[in-house]
């Protein structure tokens, strides 16, 4: 049941064999364990989007193998056998609101399941459940998706993918272009899906705070290569390396490094605001006491 994903020596060329050929992935080896929350970070153009399109076989490796559950995908794999994967691995693209097309919100959410043979009645029931899950008001369900706000359209699109009832949910910068509140709500939804329904999450993001707060494994991409992987704590323990690769620190960690320059001491660098508060409180207490 649990879907494990493995990349072995995966290379990918766009437009292979033309003068425009670009190698977007170079010798990628990676492993995504069931139930994990994996964050993928890296500069624009580093190959993140290309990598995740291998997770449901929208792209097939030019060489190497991708294993998704019990299915092995190579360059020679026949496209006919890929459809079950699309249900197992749900894919929320960047700006997913661009995929909406139905007359009503409800019909759009129910579109996916029907492509996998779910009856219209069952798909509609599923769509209602998913709309509630992503926090869409019932009154919106009969409206045209094109009349909604950007944030609402994005929820409709995410609900449309959740309606496939995937085991793995892949999201490509799902909070890009949203206001802070919209961002927080989407991230809360994603963690809730992982914690309550046991979905495996793969998230592309530029928000290091999100990485620190939610992820348990981080993949760092650079120029098509997987240049580093590990827990958020491991990744954020080397600010110089991160800066050299034009990646930031979580704001709490950044603040802690600045405090360190000013004489504070941290045994382990805090990644989140809560951790920072836990580390700071005793030191501030001591400082306050010593002034008495």
């Amino acid at each position: 049941m649990a879907t494990e994903i493995k990349f072995e020596q995966v290379n990918y060329w766009y437009q292979a064999g033309t003068p425009f050929a670009v190698q977007a992935l170079k010798n990628i080896d990676l492993h995504i364990t069931p139930g994990s929350f994996t964050a993928v970070v890296g500069q624009t153009g580093s190959g993140k989007s290309t990598m995740i399109q291998h997770l449901n076989a929208l792209l097939k490796p030019s060489s190497g193998t991708v294993t998704i559950g019990d299915q092995v995908i190579t360059n020679e794999t026949n496209n006919k056998h890929l459809k079950p994967l699309r249900k197992k691995v749900g894919m929320v693209f960047q700006f997913p609101e661009n995929q909406l097309f139905e007359e009503t919100v409800l019909k759009d959410i129910a579109f996916g399941p029907q492509n996998f043979g779910v009856s219209e009645a069952d798909a509609t029931a599923l769509a209602k459940r998913m709309a509630a899950e992503v926090g869409l008001d019932e009154s919106l369900l009969s409206r045209s998706p094109f009349d909604l706000s950007g944030g609402q359209m994005r929820r409709v699109a995410i609900a449309g993918v959740l309606a496939l009832e995937p085991e793995v949910l892949v999201l490509d910068e799902p909070t890009a272009g949203l206001d802070p509140r919209g961002r927080l709500e989407i991230m809360q939804l994603v963690t809730q899906l992982r914690d309550e329904q046991g979905l495996t999450i793969v998230l592309i993001t530029h928000q290091m705070d999100d990485v620190a707060n939610y992820a348990d494994h981080v993949l760092v991409m650079g120029h098509g290569e997987l240049i580093k992987q590990g827990s958020p704590r491991e990744i954020f323990s080397d600010p110089k390396w991160l800066e050299a690769h034009q990646l930031g620190l979580p704001s709490a960690t950044k603040f802690a490094y600045e405090l360190q320059q000013a004489g504070f001491r941290f045994d382990t660098m805090p990644l989140t605001v809560d951790e920072l508060a836990d580390e700071l409180a005793p030191q501030l207490q001591k400082g306050a006491n010593s002034h008495e």
């Binding site: 399109q53 929208l58 699309r86 997913p96 449309g160």
Partner: peptide, 27 residues
């Protein structure tokens, strides 16, 4: 991009009869 998004929602492009194919153009 849109085709990839709809593929991910289970649309089979270029399969089935003419009617089926026309239906996949709408999304």
């Amino acid at each position: 991009k849109i085709m990839n998004a709809q593929r991910s929602r289970g649309v089979d492009f270029g399969e089935g009869g003419l009617r089926q194919r026309i239906k996949t153009i709408v999304p």
